[in-house]
Design a protein around this nucleic acid. Structure first.
Lengths: 219, 219
DNA sequence: TGAATAGTGTCTCTTAGACATTATTGT
DNA sequence: ACAATAATGTCTAAGAGACACTATTCA
């Protein structure tokens, strides 16, 4: 029984131009040097407290995304997915507002519907992440992490609609947000500058800032 | 950066005496020789096609549970969870009808609410598995995998109620099962032997036998 | 004042739960 | 016939969506 290659990869998702986009990083090492791929790397047993910590480390050098919403997606494994040998990748996905992302030569955003030539099984991983996010969006407050704070309810609704790919009922949407109870109105703060009624500005309640559900804390 | 210990563990759950129970295996090796723990072991890079395959191999020698419902729960990691060193455990959970489980000296069922002295972080892992199962039970057909086929709808409802810990409305339950569309009545087959009206027997539709959702296939 | 969008009240339709009724067995 | 449980019909209450109306801003 030979050694297992242990890596962590991060699917950093954001919403830009009403489309879900993923951050790709130009690889600096073999294999696939110079190719765009998911940011990731080996687990560092000397410094990482766990794989989640490793995922945060992978994101650390990305400007602005110090403490994003981060959740474990799953683990991908097998003998063929990495040319170096039998490998395991523990994959996390992160959600950040697109205002925090600054693209660079070695870090670009790509629409998740237009990914070609991704190495390893990264295309499959991105697809799984999108499915998870879209699925969760239909019944949770997950999409709030894609909205730069502070935001208005109409702005947030646009985000939900972009993710779910369908228009939502305004009254139902607001009722749902109200009962999810994760947002708080910022007293006296309103959007302005438009030729119409200003909208109340909201932010995620502190307790939910980088919230993880209880079940996810365990992992 | 030293090596990562790569293992797979399986939380095999069943329902006995109206309580969720987990299969524990008496360890034959260090560390924790002789202690009851989750069945598991090293990933075999020479024979396992992936970690899911490894989980099936771990279950293979358990009588009767050749092809259970099996889903990835998540990956647990860190320097302290295993005394041998920095380790990763990819955990799967399996659901089987209790009629398939034969206990032995080295394989016993324990109620998930009465687990003491589990080694590693196995108590935490079992708790996460239970939470996942109970959570999914409220909106999916997951619990059908705990019912020995063929079964009646009243029997299945008892299973749901045991998992969810609350009585369910009969009419709503049957409506829900009907729209989930995973069961098929076995023509002419009815429960019998009781001094009351026999109940229609059902089985899981072939397409859903060991069903995984699309998102889970990918992992 | 009018255009544009925010926010809310209310009606209807769908769905979930409560209850009642009928059906079928063994004793 | 009676007890026991299966299965279904129907009424009611709760929730979601559709629509309309009011509110507030800037041009």
């Amino acid at each position: 029984m030979s050694e297992v290659i242990c890596t962590v990869d991060v699917v950093l998702l954001t919403l830009r131009d009403d489309a879900l986009q993923v951050l790709l990083h130009r690889r600096e090492r073999e294999p696939f040097v110079g190719t765009l791929a998911l940011p990731g790397g080996y687990v560092h047993t000397d410094s990482d407290r766990d794989t989640r910590d490793a995922a945060l480390r992978v994101l650390r050098d990305k400007p602005g995304v110090h403490s994003p919403y981060l959740e474990q997606l799953g683990t991908f494994s097998g003998p063929a997915r990495d040319p170096r040998g039998w490998s395991i990748s523990v994959v996390y996905y992160a959600l950040v507002p697109d205002t925090l992302i600054t693209e660079a030569a070695d870090a670009v955003l790509c629409s998740v519907d237009d990914l070609r030539g991704l190495p390893f099984d990264h295309a499959q991983i991105v697809a799984a992440a999108c499915e998870r996010v879209r699925n969760k969006s239909s019944y949770s407050s997950l999409p709030v992490h894609l909205c730069p704070a502070p935001f208005t309810l109409p702005q947030l609704q646009v985000v939900y609609e972009a993710l779910l790919g369908e228009p939502l009922n305004k009254v139902s949407f607001r009722r749902k947000m109200d009962e999810l109870d994760v947002l708080e109105a910022i007293p006296g703060a309103f959007s302005s500058g438009n030729a119409h009624r200003p909208a109340q500005l909201y932010q995620v309640k502190p307790a939910w800032r980088h919230a993880l559900s209880l079940s996810e804390r365990a992992i």
